[in-house]
Design a protein around this nucleic acid. Sequence first.
DNA 1: GGCCCCTGTCAACGCCCGTAGAATGAATGG
DNA 2: CCATTCATTCTACGGGCGTTGACAGGGGCC
Lengths: 204, 204
Amino acid sequence: MTDPSARPTRAQQRRQTEARILTEARQLFAELGYERTTIRAVARAAGVDAGLVMHYFGTKDELFSRAAMLPADELPTGSADQLAEALLDSVAKRLVSEPAASLAVLRSMLTNADAADRYRAAGQPQLSQIAAAIPTPDAELRANLLSAIVHGVIIERYLLRFGQLADASPEQIIDLLRPCFQTLATMPAPSSTDDPSTDGPSTD
Amino acid sequence: MTDPSARPTRAQQRRQTEARILTEARQLFAELGYERTTIRAVARAAGVDAGLVMHYFGTKDELFSRAAMLPADELPTGSADQLAEALLDSVAKRLVSEPAASLAVLRSMLTNADAADRYRAAGQPQLSQIAAAIPTPDAELRANLLSAIVHGVIIERYLLRFGQLADASPEQIIDLLRPCFQTLATMPAPSSTDDPSTDGPSTD
DNA sequence: GGCCCCTGTCAACGCCCGTAGAATGAATGG
DNA sequence: CCATTCATTCTACGGGCGTTGACAGGGGCC
């Protein structure tokens, strides 16, 4: 304990090993999705035995839970304008370097119902927060659309690697998305025709 | 062959069985993705033996290929305005009833590299066509963004089943998307600052 | 300093997968 | 009417998976 470069204590070693496993798990879940990521592969990547992974995390599901856990980044409460900009910022950040954990969730929740549930639950507060800043009756739907656009862009850039989107600079993408976000966050009502019959009663 | 309601001939029977297998395969691939869909499950759903599926399609990959094959719907060539509306129409159609084949591809290409390649290849002409109608130098990127938004909305509605988006009426969604599509298809340039340095030379 | 705990390995289990090949039996064609 | 084709089933194999439990051995506490 006197020399920090000496052989680590057992507790440290354990935490270190666990962290290594989680890092590799994140990486593999992000690359391969839930099904194709095997405990054995994670163990191999982390340089340990598969039994140890089980011993520490119990089940593959649990391992995924722990690997995919990530804090939702904070969104400032504010006007719809500010909200749109904040969202754009968050997209920009993810376009620069998408953390593996986020990709792991995104990829896995498309094949794993539990992952989808977990993600939905985790994102709900943020979604509500977004909706709260939008001053229209269909705020929730708009928040969902904003979320869908973000996901679409991330998926297309990182998971499908579509041509231009995979290479374009974040600024360019953000600049193109800005009017969309601003419109969705602030535009009063869709009114190609001022026909209120498409709207239900205001009970909702 | 004299009586059409009589027991079908062997060739008919065969085609019928193949079609039944393909239908069930599409359904399962769409619901479960590539990995979790098993030959045995497809066979069971189609009321045949797994060996028969192999006998007809050779490999699981081949079965997926055949099941996921679908014609890209035509887009009219026209002005950027018309293009945006056509795209919205196509989204609307998919929001009313998403064909299983499309979902199968969408879901599977997120876990199966081959499926992603196939899809990218299949969508490329359409993407180019969209880009051709957009009168800006970054037309391709805009086309990609439009595609990303479409995918995001479909994924969020059908694969993740996010709250409002899963239930909202297609018209409501389309009305909200319209300004986004119009902006992306027609707005001359993103110009928070009129700095041309972000653009490369026109050699490309 | 001795006991125990805790990190880590190893071998094995039962399951389900994709796939192969022989067997079956009815429709087909000469 | 018999030989053949062919749609279909049955059985089985090899492999990889998640998971388990026994075992080792060095560190940490009293």
